[in-house]
């Protein structure tokens, strides 16, 4: 397959942390810069171009944060699940690095999604919280993220932690389709999908365009943070290896 011919050597090439460091170091300022520009454009459109909703008034402005945050919550979970497969199946040396960098970012966007949703719910639905399927499955998402972060801290040996966390991540991945399709499978207070639909988006272009720009901006912010996190994680592992090496050397000298 031609795809394999190009992608597999690329992934193998990136398995070398030194190679990854130089490539990500070049890429990071561009991704970060583009994220900042798109964020400014997106926010300008939201605040000065996009109209108020005829029913919701100005509170629709919360949508431009809430929806991208929700997408990123699922996006980062999928990065984590792919990385978990990388750890367990392909034993890719950067898989665990990627997963570890992704978890706090995913958790933060899940929190943003839940809180902005709640702040949108109060004026529109009359309540901050409702135990409907979408809201509950998203709360479960946050709990899974926090569980994964806690498990890392509970197991000291990095390789054992990586395997345990990977298994938990793959089990938790069952929640991703539940979050996405909860609004179709159950009768929820939360509205069904209005952007990614088979029959096309049901939002007017005047709101859809700023929403998509904000979504791309949020995604680039997330990717920049993920790259930066991976770079720091690689350094942290070098520090760990060298600290152990130093301790061994001091031991040998003392003996």
């Amino acid at each position: 397959m031609p795809l394999d011919r190009y992608i597999q050597p690329m992934i193998r090439e990136l398995a070398n942390p030194t190679r990854f460091m130089s490539l990500s170091g070049t890429l990071l300022p561009w991704v970060g810069g583009l994220a900042a520009i798109l964020m400014i454009v997106g926010l300008y459109m939201v605040w000065f171009a996009a109209p108020a909703d005829y029913q919701q008034g100005e509170t629709v402005k919360i949508m431009y944060l809430h929806v991208p945050a929700a997408w990123l919550s699922l996006f980062f979970y999928m990065i984590m699940a792919t990385s978990a497969l990388g750890t367990l199946v392909w034993r890719h040396p950067l898989a665990d690095v990627s997963q570890k960098a992704a978890a706090p970012i995913g958790a933060a966007f899940t929190l943003i999604c839940l809180v902005t949703g709640s702040l949108w719910g109060k004026p529109m639905w009359g309540t901050y919280w409702q135990w409907d399927a979408r809201l509950t499955s998203m709360l479960v998402m946050l709990l899974i993220y926090l569980g994964i972060l806690a498990l890392w801290r509970a197991i000291e040996e990095p390789n054992r932690a990586a395997r345990a966390v990977s298994i938990l991540t793959l089990v938790g991945a069952v929640n991703v389709p539940i979050v996405k399709f909860s609004v179709d499978w159950w009768n929820t207070l939360h509205q069904p999908a209005s952007v990614f639909r088979i029959d096309g988006p049901t939002i007017h272009a005047s709101m859809l365009v700023p929403l998509l720009i904000m979504a791309v901006a949020f995604s680039l912010v997330g990717i920049a943070l993920h790259l930066a996190g991976m770079r720091t994680e690689i350094l942290r592992r070098r520090v760990r290896t060298l600290t152990i090496l130093e301790a061994e050397r001091l031991d040998a000298q003392a003996a």
């Binding site: 008034g57 100005e58 509170t59 402005k61 919360i62 944060l65 809430h66 945050a69 943003i112 809180v115 902005t116 702040l119 949108w120 109060k122 004026p123």
Partner: peptide
């Protein structure tokens, strides 16, 4: 009156 909810959302994010 909805300003609080909008502002809070943006500040928190």
């Amino acid at each position: 009156s909805h300003t609080f909810f909008i502002a809070f959302s943006y500040i928190l994010t």
